[in-house]
Design a protein around this nucleic acid. Structure first.
Length: 680
DNA sequence: GTAGCGTAGATTTTT
DNA sequence: TCTACGCTAC
């Protein structure tokens, strides 16, 4: 009898040795192996989006694409770091010539090389929100606006308005009319401030975050030869989180892709949650139209969540209208237990429930780092933090406080920024303002004297700072400290050259800043430790420009130096806002404060805007899809400390978007007669 | 002009 | 809870 035998042809062997067909599912493989051209990959939650993108890079390298021809654009620094790391693990190729980073960091890299074409120098400073506010305040002051009679928008609000304008390309009038109606009468003055702000940025050789995108696009549009340079190099452009790109970023991608280059955009329209920052979903929804002949790949197999959780997520998002139809299927077995819906009397009981359940789950074998508590806004985590602290449960929180935005970090970098960019007024004022007896008035006078010296504009290496500065008029009280400052600055530029970043930080700390710390803060010690850590981090850089750019573009949540770093090995529960939880996953997830006015957010309910509510629902969807095995939806029935006076809470309307049978309602009893008492 | 103090006001999400 | 601002005393 003849024996039936099938011969399997060995898959093609690549330099990396990866067998793509085995490593990927069919949907993923189709995207990864797609021929050069335009492709949109719609990758649902938990479907291996990062895997697809990293394997695509590996695939390209395996198919004779030079690493330097690849550009990988991501939304966060963390994402880009992780992807590059994974590619490195995957392939033997040298990937150092590959460009990977956020839109902002890639923009700054390009602008650094061509700054002169736009009226800047390559040592331009990058402004964060705080710096923007200082500039705006000084512009407002110089414009002689009567802010007493009618309320003029605060610098913070103005920054948001201008930013929205830049990122969406919508005219100022329209933005004011639609979102800041109460300032409509100020329109002309606001425009004046805006022009003043732009002028000031140019004068001080500084760019804000938006400029990094806007000016890159302008550079490309005004200088075809520059555009050609980059189009010619980046034959393969890959974009992560495409659903969160805004119109400027979209334009930047279009320009880089040009007529010929390959473009692969990966995203999930259902997870677009950054429209408040200008993200424009129509970019991903309209991709097939904007790139005729493009291929759309849909990846619908979810490897993360059990079917019970995935079904709930699918049901929750289906209330939204503007989206690609897709049907996420779980690859996992049904568990038989449903997500829990837990109503609790008040916020502190909610916290108690979460804490207790965390301990029980740990006893059941789920480690703490596989659990997360998610919420709409950071302040909603307060009771949880207290409760976890009381019970001694360790937790890690990615709070709003960012390492690089803390005052002492910014103080130190002001010194560096000034010696690098001698037109940086903000940094100068900040630096001299640290000296005792030197307030805004004296600082401004010193700046004027500095401008008069002419050295701020001259390109050649300055002589010793001390030679220049010691001639300035200084109040008696400040004289000694001023002298000390001068010698410190001399140390930053030995022989006219820029010192090494960590050396600079050390000089600043020892020269002037240590005294200031002890005099100004009761936690001077820990701040000092932060600065020492910063100095250590500076060791990774030779170039001060590069170091300062990194500082400005990075947030602490990216996992770089943060005070708690040492204790990282400890097992910890994660507390996170939903926005920051995007892309992450845990075995057990608690989603708290599911109350109308909290989530969905009150302002959004007030605005009564269907699109905004849909985005809020996508946020809800993102939260649900973080959970692998266990999901707890909780809400308090009363909120005695409510600012709005709504003491009785209405459960979130999102809970009505799915049938009640998809969750199991838990009735939480109380066996502690003292539980209702206020803590002491 | 500066520094220290008290009060009012506000609390979404981040490169 | 924290921060931004205005007032007052040096």
């Amino acid at each position: 009898m003849a024996r039936q035998y099938t011969l399997h042809r060995s898959s093609q062997v690549h330099a990396s040795g990866i067998d793509y067909k085995t490593a990927l599912n069919e949907e993923q493989y189709a995207a990864v192996s797609s021929p050069p051209g335009r492709a949109l990959v719609i990758a649902g939650a938990g479907s291996g989006k990062t895997r697809t993108l990293t394997y695509r890079v590996a695939w390209l390298l395996d198919h004779q694409v030079d690493a330097r021809e690849i550009l990988l654009l991501t939304f966060t620094n963390k994402a880009s770091r992780e992807m590059v790391e994974r590619v490195r693990e995957l392939v033997p190729h040298d990937t150092s010539a590959l460009w990977a980073g956020t839109f902002h960091s890639i923009g700054s890299r390009i602008l650094r090389r061509h700054a002169e074409d736009l009226g800047f120098t390559k040592s331009y400073s990058i402004l964060d929100r705080d710096d923007q506010k200082s500039i705006l305040n000084s512009v407002i002051a110089s414009l002689d606006i009567d802010t007493k009679q009618r309320r003029f928008p605060k610098a913070d609000v103005l920054a948001s308005i201008f930013s929205l304008m830049e990122n969406t390309g919508v005219a100022l009038t329209e933005i004011i009319a639609s979102r800041y109606d109460q300032f409509y009468d100020w329109l002309e003055k606001i425009e004046e401030v805006r022009l003043g702000y732009i002028a000031k940025k140019l004068a001080t050789n500084s760019m804000d975050f938006d400029d990094l995108l806007v000016l890159t696009v302008r550079l490309f549009e005004q200088q075809p030869d520059v555009l050609q340079l980059y189009q010619g190099r980046f034959k393969h452009v890959l974009v992560d989180e495409y659903q969160d790109t805004n119109s400027v970023q979209g334009r930047m991608i279009d320009l880089l892709a040009g007529e010929r280059n390959s473009l692969m955009a990966v995203g999930d329209d259902a997870q677009s949650i950054y429209s408040w920052r200008g993200a424009d979903m129509s970019l991903i929804l309209g991709f097939p139209l904007r790139y005729p002949g493009s291929k759309v790949h849909i990846i619908e197999t979810n490897y993360r969540s059990v079917p019970e959780i995935l079904d709930l997520s699918n049901a929750a998002i289906s209330a939204n209208r503007g989206r690609f139809e897709k049907d996420l299927r779980s690859s996992r077995e049904a568990q038989g237990t449903l997500p829990a819906l837990v109503a609790l009397p008040d916020p502190s009981t909610q916290a108690a429930f979460v804490a207790q359940r965390i301990l029980e789950l740990r006893d059941e074998g789920i480690p703490l780092e596989e659990m997360a508590v998610l919420y709409r806004a950071h302040f909603q985590s307060l009771e949880i933090q207290m409760e976890l602290t009381v019970r001694g449960i360790p937790f890690a929180i990615t709070s709003g406080l960012r390492f690089f935005e803390q005052a002492h970090i910014k103080d130190v970098s002001a010194f560096m920024r000034f010696v690098v960019n001698r037109r940086d007024e903000i940094s100068f004022l900040r630096m001299v303002g640290l000296l005792p007896g030197c307030g805004p008035g004296t600082a401004a006078k010193l700046w004027a004297e500095w401008l008069k010296s002419g050295w701020s504009e001259r390109v050649e290496v300055p002589p010793k700072w001390s030679d220049l500065f010691l001639k300035f008029k200084i109040p008696k009280k400040t004289a000694k400290h001023w002298e000390q400052l001068c010698y410190t600055l001399d140390e930053l530029t030995p022989d006219g050259a820029l010192a090494h970043p960590s050396q600079m930080i050390f000089s600043i700390l020892e020269g002037v800043y240590a005294d200031y710390l002890t005099a100004s803060f009761d936690n001077a010690e820990s701040r000092r430790a932060d600065i020492e850590q910063l100095s250590q981090y500076g060791g990774n850089f030779d170039d001060v420009l590069e170091f300062l750019a990194q500082l400005s573009l990075m947030s602490s949540t990216d996992g770089e130096p943060s005070g708690e770093r040492a204790a990282k090995d400890d097992e910890k529960v994660t507390l996170s806002s939903i926005h920051q939880a995007k892309g992450l996953e845990w075995k057990a997830v608690f989603l708290i404060w599911l109350v109308n006015g909290q989530f969905p957010n009150g302002r959004i309910l007030e605005a009564d805007d269907a699109d905004m509510l849909e985005e809020e629902r996508r946020l809800f969807y993102v939260a649900l899809t973080r959970a692998k095995d266990e999901l707890y939806l909780t809400y308090p029935m009363m909120n005695p400390k409510s600012y709005t006076g709504d003491i009785i809470c209405r459960p979130s309307q999102f809970l009505e978007d799915f049938p009640a049978e998809m969750v199991e309602e838990w009735n939480v009893g109380n066996d502690d007669p003292w539980a209702d008492d206020e803590p002491f």
